[in-house]
Write a protein that binds this DNA or RNA. Structure first.
Lengths: 113, 113
DNA sequence: CAGCATCCAGTGGGATACTG
DNA sequence: CAGTATCCCACTGGATGCTG
């Protein structure tokens, strides 16, 4: 049993999966893989996500040190989200899931690029 | 947008992640990696899972062709769950998450073997 | 031994409106 | 542009008891 930040995990894998739990985190990370993105850009490409949830997930990813947030002191505000090294390695693994799906479900199109 | 079995997915990755969504599926698959297991065995090693949820997840994994179920005609009943080839490949990726966690959180013990 | 039926609680996420 | 604040619903999973 692992205790981390007030939460319980039955094993290390359970703990590891926590970083990408839910419908959106993996998708967000993939969108940040090639290059950093701004908030609105991210919302646009992550089709279907609500502003509220995007914000929540970005906060969680930041506090987990998977991404970093860069705020430019401009008006209107400009914010960029980048993957950390730790986040890049995680995202590489996530992309393997995508490849797995491509292999076993080749007829499903992949518009998530 | 992908439609599959009455459900909607925003992209292929979202679809791929569906196979291991929730707290338990990844853990279960890892436990089946080395060798097939019986129901009770699986419940014992997957510490904390309820019988109901284990059953639900096994059914989902079976209908997704990630595992196969072998029923021996004995009394008392004997059932074994095996990974398919598709499932093995998926589980290999899952194990990389574990390695990622070991790398970045080396001080957390790993009792999930 | 393996698995089904209920009932219930917590939470992840949707919709909408507002702000520095 | 990049958030916050509410309100609400659906779904995942927990607890317990029963059965071929």
């Amino acid at each position: 049993m692992i205790l981390y930040k007030e939460k319980k995990y039955v094993c290390l894998l359970d703990f590891a999966m926590e970083f990408i739990r839910g419908k959106w985190k993996a998708v967000i990370l993939c969108h940040l893989y090639k290059e950093p993105k701004r908030f609105l850009e991210l919302q646009r490409v992550t089709k279907g996500i609500s502003q509220k949830v995007l914000n929540e997930k970005l906060k969680e990813l930041e506090s987990d040190e998977i991404i970093t947030k860069i705020v430019y002191a401009e008006i209107p505000p400009k914010v960029e989200y980048h993957l950390t090294e730790k986040g890049k390695e995680l995202t590489k693994i996530i992309k393997e899931f995508e490849n797995w799906a491509v292999k076993y479900y080749p007829y499903l199109e992949n518009d998530c690029k």
